[in-house]
């Protein structure tokens, strides 16, 4: 049996997790069979205008829904409503009803929320018809929690399927149809891992000032105090006059592409591929490697003018980037 560093067996850990899940599932089962709130009455009786709106909208040309003569000749003997309108008769406009009660449904949701199952998606719906409804019928609906699944994992995340059953009744208390409506209450799957930071530059006493300036949004070019020569990347001694005294100037931020590559492989997770990388001649006469912004590989061309912007890539890293001139 595998023993973890904490001294707890791996299979025990597994059992406890499973036991937790089982207890939670049993708690949820307490809501199954409970009716949610009082019966909901339909605002209008079944009527011809609403039937007309629906059949016109969906292009249903079956004459029994509007044509009295045709309906009379059918086995129904009179006009009937399309069965799939079942849910429509009891619907309440687009303004949601204030429904902040503390009934079984709200209690069930709070329990699900407590485990992080805060997201919801409707998954499917099945209707069963006991009889055709017809103009003049006045319907009402009751809702019952029909079933709650064990914990399931889908592409969306892990959660429980919750199925409610809506029963539709006529004024005599006879059921005309019912509907099973299934949702999943789930804990959203963890977002794909954030990109790791870019490979960090090795900073030394000789170059850290240059990277620090970038962090402040400034692109500097090292300048020899002895002979005034500009140099990049930074180094401690001027190769022209051997002076170790230097200061820096701020780059104007203009240049042109000296060379470029488009990397495809290997893929380093800090970057998006294909990854273009430029070698840029700054107008001051020094050269720097940088990534282009808002450019596709096809846009790249040796000699093309760029403007240079400093952007923050990671909390501790800002770099110059090249924007292709129009």
């Amino acid at each position: 049996m595998a023993i973890t560093r904490e001294g707890m067996t791996v299979s025990q850990t597994q059992q406890e997790t499973d036991a937790d899940k089982k207890a939670f599932y049993e708690q949820l089962q307490g809501f199954v069979g409970l009716q949610i709130g009082p019966p909901q009455p339909a605002p209008d009786e079944v009527n011809i205008p609403m039937i007309r709106h629906l059949v016109e909208a969906v292009g249903d040309e079956n004459p029994i829904y509007l044509d009295e003569a045709a309906a009379k000749a059918s086995r129904h003997g009179e006009v009937v409503a399309p069965p799939t309108m079942l849910q429509a008769w009891v619907m309440h406009g687009i303004t949601p009803r204030s429904n902040e009660g503390d009934g079984p449904y709200e209690q069930m949701n709070r329990l699900l929320f407590s485990k992080g199952f805060t997201s919801v998606v409707a998954t499917n719906c099945e209707q069963v018809y006991d009889r055709y409804v017809k103009p003049g019928d006045r319907l009402s609906m009751t809702t019952t929690i029909d079933s709650i699944s064990e914990e399931k994992t889908t592409g969306l995340g892990t959660g429980h399927f919750v199925t409610t059953r809506q029963d539709y009744w006529d004024a005599d208390g006879n059921r005309v149809g019912s509907m099973l409506f299934r949702i999943i209450r789930f804990r959203p799957a963890a977002k794909s891992k954030p990109k790791p930071p870019r490979p960090a530059p090795a900073t030394t006493h000789d170059n850290s000032w240059w990277f620090d300036a970038l962090k402040d949004g400034t692109l500097l070019i090292q300048r020899c105090k002895g002979c005034g020569e500009l140099r990049n990347p930074p180094h401690p001694m001027c190769a022209s006059c051997r002076s170790m005294e230097w200061d820096s100037i701020e780059a104007k931020g203009t240049g042109s592409i000296h060379s470029y590559v488009v990397t495809h492989y290997p893929v380093v997770p800090s970057f998006d591929y294909p990854l273009p990388i430029l070698l840029v001649d700054l107008d001051e006469g020094v050269r720097m490697v940088m990534n282009p912004i808002d450019a596709t590989p096809e846009d790249l061309q040796i000699g093309r003018k760029v403007t240079i912007e400093v952007h923050k890539c990671d909390p501790d890293l800002s770099l110059p980037f090249a924007r292709l001139a129009k």
């Binding site: 870019r198 990347p233 990854l275 990534n291």
Partner: peptide, 21 residues
């Protein structure tokens, strides 16, 4: 691994841009 040496700093001006190989 990174290190504050001149040897590693040679790659400081290319690695962060993805020029690594």
């Amino acid at each position: 691994p990174n290190a504050a040496t001149a040897e590693r700093a040679q790659f400081s001006y290319t690695s962060s841009q993805g020029l690594l190989t």
